[in-house]
């Protein structure tokens, strides 16, 4: 009898931290705001935010959740964009197949980078991933020009979806909601992955790699899978980007894409789930507005980036979460 009582006592655990609950709610709030976004800002900008937010979240699977710095994410995004566009251009397939091809393209590059670099740490991983992404850029630019059209982007015909119902993607609002639904599903899938035993193991690697290895986790294979997931979601973002732009363009593969995703992620907060999403929205909104006034938008965005990072050292969302935590502490203990 007392033994039974004891087991009941021992089950009284509450595993979810306040951060996890806060992030979960924030995710739903952001997605709900996404429903009305095209009525607040221009439809193309809203679409662009969604695509790059997915890309930044995928990037942060490595940087924030696993602790791997990648400077080669343009490679995944570009591979996704080109794979998605080429199957439409040469194969005449539909949008859904194109998105599957985009995911496969991103995953393939992730396998390549993973096999070569998974055991490298810090700057070494960053450099190998950058080198491979640059290699892809130059391959697409010249040797594969026959298939990629090099500096002229690979242009797509107007697209529409017929399953499960007809969506005309040349209509800006339809395109936005099409992209939004896919991004929302991908965000939920990433949340699910991070809530899984695998996702928790990633946090363990980020927190203390030696200790998690000593606990018996196979670090190399876990990191490898993390790179694959990052490549898969980045590839999906690339496929959506090609549909949004109506083309796969060589600038997607340029190293600056890899740099900008780092800025967007850091701006939002790497140690959070929704930070990269929020960082992307702020970054693209600022860039879009500033570039309306000046061609030298990089300088102004750079200055604002520095100002924001000084104001929000943990990123915009990261710092808000931190402040909430500080406010909670006196009452909690």
């Amino acid at each position: 009898m007392s033994a039974k009582q004891k087991t009941q006592e021992t089950t009284s655990y509450k595993p979810y931290s306040w951060q996890a609950i806060l992030e979960f709610r924030a995710m739903w709030v952001v997605l709900a705001l996404g429903l009305v976004l095209p009525f607040v800002i221009s439809k193309p900008l809203a679409t662009e935010i969604m695509v790059y937010a997915l890309f930044a979240l995928a990037f942060n699977l490595l940087l924030g959740h696993t602790g791997i710095i990648s400077f080669g994410h343009a490679g995944y995004l570009g591979a996704g964009a080109y794979a998605g566009a080429m199957v439409v251009y040469y194969g005449g397939v539909g949008v859904w197949v194109s998105l599957l091809a985009a995911m496969a393209g991103g995953t393939l590059v992730a396998v390549l980078i993973g096999l070569l670099a998974v055991k490298r740490k810090g700057a070494y991983f960053a450099m190998i991933s950058l080198a491979i992404a640059q290699m892809l850029y130059f391959l697409a630019l010249s040797p594969f020009k026959r298939w990629t059209d090099g500096e002229d982007s690979l242009k797509l015909p107007p697209l529409s979806v017929d399953f499960p119902f007809h969506i005309d993607l040349s209509d800006q609002l339809s395109l936005y909601y099409f992209v939004f639904v896919i991004v929302a599903l991908a965000v939920l899938a990433q949340w699910r992955i991070l809530s899984s035993p695998f996702g928790h193991a990633l946090k363990g690697i980020r927190e203390n790699e030696d200790r998690i290895r000593a606990c018996g986790f196979d670090i190399t294979r876990i990191k490898f899978l993390s790179i694959i997931y990052s490549g898969l979601f980045s590839g999906l973002a690339g496929g959506l980007l090609a549909i949004y732009l109506g083309a796969a363009s060589i600038t997607i593969l340029f190293w600056m894409t890899s740099g900008i995703v780092v800025m967007q992620t850091v701006l939002g907060g790497t140690h959070t789930f929704m930070g990269p999403f929020i960082g992307t929205a702020v970054f693209l909104y600022l860039r879009n507005n500033i570039s309306n006034y000046t061609d030298r938008w990089e300088m102004w965005v750079g200055a604002m980036f520095m100002a924001l990072i000084l104001l929000f050292p943990e990123g915009i969302w990261g710092t808000i979460v931190q402040k909430i935590g500080e406010r909670r502490r006196p009452s909690a203990s």
């Binding site: 363990g204 203390n208 294979r221």
Partner: peptide, 26 residues
């Protein structure tokens, strides 16, 4: 050598998890 930013519960749970699942992502 602990996992500093995780909860006390999660520190131990993660180690216990190592006996059961590493790759289940769902």
């Amino acid at each position: 050598s602990i996992f500093p930013r995780l909860s006390v519960f999660e520190n131990v749970r993660l180690a216990a998890q190592s006996r059961v699942s590493m790759f289940n992502s769902w």
